[in-house]
Every structure is written in structure tokens, then in C-alpha cells.
Amino acid sequence: MTSQILQLVLGLLAMPAIVLAIILPGELAIRRFPQKRQSSLRPWIWLSPVLALVGLVIAYPLAASIVFSFRDATASKWVGFSNFVWAFGSAMRPVLFNNVLWIVVFPLLTAVLALSAAIMLDRVKYERIARTFLILPTAMSFVAGAVIWKMMYTYEPPMQPQTGTLNAIWTAITGRMPIAWLIDRSVNNYALIVVAVWMSIGVATLILSAGVKNMPRELVEAARIDGAGEWAIFRFVTLPSLWPTILVVLTTQAIFSLKVFDIVYVMTNGSFGTDVIANRMYTELFVKQNLGTASAIAVLLLILASPVIFMNIKQIKSGGGE
């Protein structure tokens, strides 16, 4: 315990100390130069801690992963594309398929629910309180969410009293057999996606709510005067003007579905056909100790995420951020 406290103190002191140790001497050093030179040197002094950090944690691993992905399990010799051949081979196919399912279902479900929530909340006076309920799951770890939903999905054999919330409701309403939500291969992936949706709605609703509130009121009023009904207003006014915001939500959630790890790790650990890329990577790395295949999976993730990366960059470049 004392070691932890020591580390805490060390961390709290080290953060500002590192920054000061770079910037202050740097500032003193460039003070001798003329103004013009100062202002061309200064940014690099100031940026150096940030560049070091981002370089170490992001840029270097990015490059290294790409290199490792072409090397063998212990990164000792080149193996060409064989790791990628494996990654697209039969062993990975069901895993990739699961991620495709995530990428399609999760963003859509989240966006539809969040959009409905945003539109409904906009019309009630107690929006703040209602919104708080939706955000609560966002504050929790996926581990906690997974524990909670494991309980929600609890399965007891038929004829036993069902202690899981969902099966209790299911059997009470339909009178049918309880469902083993996390084991039954026809539903278990969806069951996992529902957990992610439950945890992601909060943020998505916040973003869409802001979009709804930014929508010019006159637009809706003009449409109403033109005789449009509620549905027509939604279809022809609300949806098109919210579309860019919806796109933000969709892409964010799509990226999330690429990276999803914790929920699957805690709830099923990838068994019963629920494995996803990130979990498989963890397995390759720590169970099978294969650096090459693990890196190939990481590179695969990068390739899958790159369209969104470039889309964001393009968006910012064309004036969204400046």
C-alpha cells in the first residue's frame, strides 16, 4: 500500500515537473535569439513533451505494429503476408463476421434509439432529469455494465423461478421456455450488443439533442404552415437537417464496434461464437504468445478504421474545426 501512495505522489509531482523541466530551460535558451527566431523555435519547445508522448504511445506503436505484423510469433524473422493470410483465413472468419454484425447493428440501434430519445426529450420540461437517467450507464465501466447485464440475462432451467430480469419477464409474458441469452447462438451476439447500446445511448443522445436544439425553429414552423404532418416534418425537415450529426454518431459507434473488448471479455470471454477482433487479439497475444498474428489483427483494425479517420480529417480540414 505504501508503494502505491508513493507512486501516486510521484505521479502527481512528475507530470508538472516534466513539463516545466522542458519548457522553462527551453524558454531561457531561446531568449538570446532575435524575436523572429524565438517565435519559430518556441512551438517546437512547447510541443516537445506532447510530441514525445504521442510519438511514444501512438506513432511508434503504429509503425512497430505494422513491422511486427510481417514477422513471426516472436518477431525474430520475416514471414511475409502469412499473418494476414491467417487473419483472413478460416480461423478468423467467424470472428470477423461477428464484428461485421456489431458494426451494422450497434450503430444503427444506438442512432435510432438516441434520435428518438433526443426528439422526445426536447419536448418535455424535465429533460435534464430524464437525460441523467440515460447518461448514468455511460459513467460506468464496461466491466460493471457486463456484470449488471450478466445478472439481467441470468438463465435458470425451465420450471425453476427465473432470477434474471429478462427471463422472468419473458416467461411471465409469453409463457414460453426461458432463453439462455448468452449461450444461445441465435441471440447471444445481440444480447452483447444490447449491453453496448445501453451504455452508449447517453453520449449519442447528448450529441443528437444538441443537433435538435440547433435546428432552426422557423424551419419546422414553415413546414407546419405548409401543411406537413408530424411524420412529414420528421422525414423532410428534421432528418435531413440532423443528418450530419447522425453521421457523427454513426461513425463514432462504428469505430467503437471495431474496438469492443471489455463487454465480450467479461460476459462470455468470446465463447459460444461471440468472439470479436479485439478479444482474439488479446488471446493471440497472451494465451498463444504470438506477436505476429496479434499485430496483424491490430493492423487489420487500423485498416478498417482508416476510412473514418480520413473522413474526420477531411471534415476538419474543410473548415469544421477552425
Binding site: P61, S65, I277, A278, A305, I313, I316
Partner: peptide, 17 residues
């Protein structure tokens, strides 16, 4: 722009290195 791009990188990428 690099910062914008880096936001989206999957954290799994950094693990091995």
C-alpha cells in the same frame, strides 16, 4: 490533423509495442 486522426486509432494497436 494528425491529432484528429489519432483520436480514432484502436488502442489495441499500441499494446504489443
Amino acid at each position: 490533423l494528425a491529432m484528429v486522426g489519432f483520436q480514432v486509432l484502436p488502442p489495441q494497436l499500441v499494446l504489443v509495442p
